[in-house]
Design a protein around this nucleic acid. Sequence first.
RNA 1: GCGGCCUUGGUGUAGCCUGGUUAACAUAAUCCCCUGUCACGGGAUAGAUCGCCGGUUCAAAUCCGGUCGGCCGCGCCA
Length: 478
Amino acid sequence: MKNRVLIKDLRKNIGQTVTISGWVSVRRNQGKMVFFDFRDASGTVQGVVLPASPAMEEAKILRPEYVVAVTGEVVKRGEKNVQQGKENGGLELRIEKITTLNASETPPFDVTADTSGIGEETRLEYRYLDLRSERMQKNLRMRSDFVRRVREFLFKKSFTEIETPLLTESTPEGSRDFVVPSRLHPGSFYALPQAPQQYKQLLMVGGFEKYFQIARAVRDEDLRADRGFEHTQVDIEMSFVDESDVMDLVEEMMTETCEGMGFVLKEKPFPRFTYAEAVAKFGADKFDLRTEEDKAKGVLAFAFVYQFPFFEKTDEGGWTFTHNPFSRTIAEHADWLMQNKNIGKILTMQYDLVCNGYEIGGGSVREHKPEPLKKVYEVMGYSEAEIEERIGHMLKAFTYGAPPHGGIALGVERILMTLTGEKYLREVQAFPMTRRGQTAVMNAPKPLTKEQLAELGLSIVKKDGPSTGPATTGGKKS
RNA sequence: GCGGCCUUGGUGUAGCCUGGUUAACAUAAUCCCCUGUCACGGGAUAGAUCGCCGGUUCAAAUCCGGUCGGCCGCGCCA
């Protein structure tokens, strides 16, 4: 479309005959003349088909959401017809020619109105239509803008963006894995990453010093308003840093990014509370520092919480880690770990970033020496053989000159929820899934064919007994 | 795994508690009228056996039981 003019640029073309391309938002049939609102990704404009226009015949066919190329003269509106405060309210397109590029069925809901009142089942079935709505366009464009600014900031700070594998090893002590069967190794499975944690640490061993990735993370745990199977994180790791180095960087990044997007921050530098202080002061490790007035103004209130307890009791009376087994103890408590004493009191160099009541990120300075890391697993009751099986590769890597390192992961959806004011994670994802894990538009998950199962060496075992074929039930809307 | 709420034309709701008429309203849709509309307006038409199964009753959208689906929370989420 070489000659196409974007709707937002039309005011530069007054007096000229131009062609726009986009969708019909509204048709207002006025008898002898017809008005339209046209929409492209850049904006909206009114077009008018006058009685003598050769486009009249085509104009009568057009309906909402038809896709059209429209040629006409951009004219200033008469004073009486100017619409104050409306985009392109001072001009209109005097239509000479309409080419219908594609028709549209009557949409199940009005995409030019606010779709938040439409049932979510319908919105997700027709997500491609919901995405045309102003709110979804705004949310996803803001998301893109945020990620772009983060990337630019990190590149400016000499970070290297590196992708880590999607098909990787299961980590039984974390959350439940999504698992992928291996065709070449029947009976064996890859797991999708819950986080790039181990790979990014290995990148530090690999000498990159400053890594980041806009990384997808996948966890098979029940969904919530602010939690889905998949989410995206800004994943960062740095060598030769301590806690404050990472917090300083994140603070600078979030300040520059959010202020660049026009947001106002409540407090700079971000207040920092130890976990003990936060619990004493707020009764929780995440909290909302905004006043009602701040909330009304859309102010962002960031804070850090640091020095979390390393371990907590399990139901069985043993110990497990509170946040991350790869974290390092604070210097004063290193001996306690090695001597296996005061376990419940050991603090770790773990920090969370909190904003407007959400925990939007967490990280730590990692243990970069094999002995203390191994000790963490011993405290948690793992045998020598189990430790070797689970993290033997990390212990081995750390024997080859692993630098001290630390990092953080920030939840992109959580951040966008605070930026947009949306209450649901799904509103800042293009194609979210339902609470029970049914994908938008498409019908995943679905049974595999017998042939697919056979190739993978799989058979379906139901709770009441084995079965040879794929399940025949399941799958929504079909 | 547990608890709560919800399901009525394409869409969003009312009606349900207190069983009984032609299931109402808005909007979208179709057709007609309209030369300045911009949430255009006016008129006409069409569209739901009330998620599904069963029970109670002379009679069920309405009461009862079950179930599918959706949402919210708890558990879970290093």
